[in-house]
């Protein structure tokens, strides 16, 4: 199970509940709009209350709410535990991430490798964070100036990045690939182009990168 997997599960769950509720209410509404239109000739009901029905309905709602609270809080704890596990792993890869107006700097703690860029519209100006496949990666993020947020949409990974405060995200990349990362907290003039890449490579290539400072 990955962080993205937890998001997908809970999102699907809530989407199905929401979809069902939406369909039920809309269908009820439409059916009774037709049946109760003035032309149909049914007189308006004079009943103004049905306390038993209302209370039992509210209790049922409370049941649904409690169910959702419990399930989603558990999911949140699973997610937090997963991250704590990654952080505590002996082979964790630690990267210091600094956000600034308007780009990112990634500093590996395992070796001298560090990368940054200028983050303009041309993708070549974006920095690429290189990480090994299979090992947990911890991103320790802080900002040099204003509030930013690091977001890798495909991995459902996001955290705000503050000055004078360090937030941390931990994740494992289980296959090779390149992901787009963005700044998702509005941070000023060049916010729209404040993108970066994460590239997961095999362990050997990663070691080479650490030593040389550039991916093979």
């Amino acid at each position: 199970m990955s962080i993205r997997g937890i998001f997908d599960d809970i999102f699907l769950l809530e989407l199905s509940i929401a979809g069902a509720v939406f369909v039920v209410i809309t269908v009820l509404l439409v059916v009774f709009l037709v049946r109760r239109r003035a032309g149909a000739g049914r007189p308006a009901s004079s009943r103004a209350d049905n306390i038993v029905l209302e209370v039992s309905y509210a209790v049922a709602l409370l049941g649904i709410a409690v169910f959702l609270v419990v399930v989603t809080a558990q999911a949140n704890h699973r997610q937090q535990q997963m991250q704590a596990q990654f952080r505590g792993a002996p082979d964790v890869v630690r990267v210091d991430v600094t956000a600034f107006q308007w780009c990112w700097r990634f500093q590996h703690l395992d070796g001298p490798a560090s990368t940054t860029g200028t983050c303009q519209e041309d993708p070549a100006t974006r920095p690429t964070l290189v990480v090994p496949i299979g090992r947990p990666v911890e991103l320790r993020m802080t900002s040099h100036d204003v509030v930013h947020a690091l977001w890798i949409p495909d991995l459902a990974l996001k955290s705000d990045v503050y000055p004078d405060h360090t937030n941390s995200l931990a994740v494992t990349f289980d296959h090779a690939g390149t992901w787009l990362g963005r700044c998702s907290e509005f941070c000023g003039t060049h916010h729209p182009t404040m993108d970066f890449y994460v590239r997961a490579v095999p362990e050997q290539e990663y070691q080479q990168y650490l030593a040389s400072g550039s991916p093979a």
Partner: peptide, 27 residues
């Protein structure tokens, strides 16, 4: 208003769920 606000309300429950909000906030 009834069905349209309902869309806002139901998605409101989603964004009140931390594991969903981490992904969709600021998007």
């Amino acid at each position: 208003f009834v069905p349209q606000f309902l869309v806002g309300g139901l998605t409101g429950i989603m964004v009140a769920t931390p594991v969903i909000d981490y992904q969709v906030t600021d998007s």
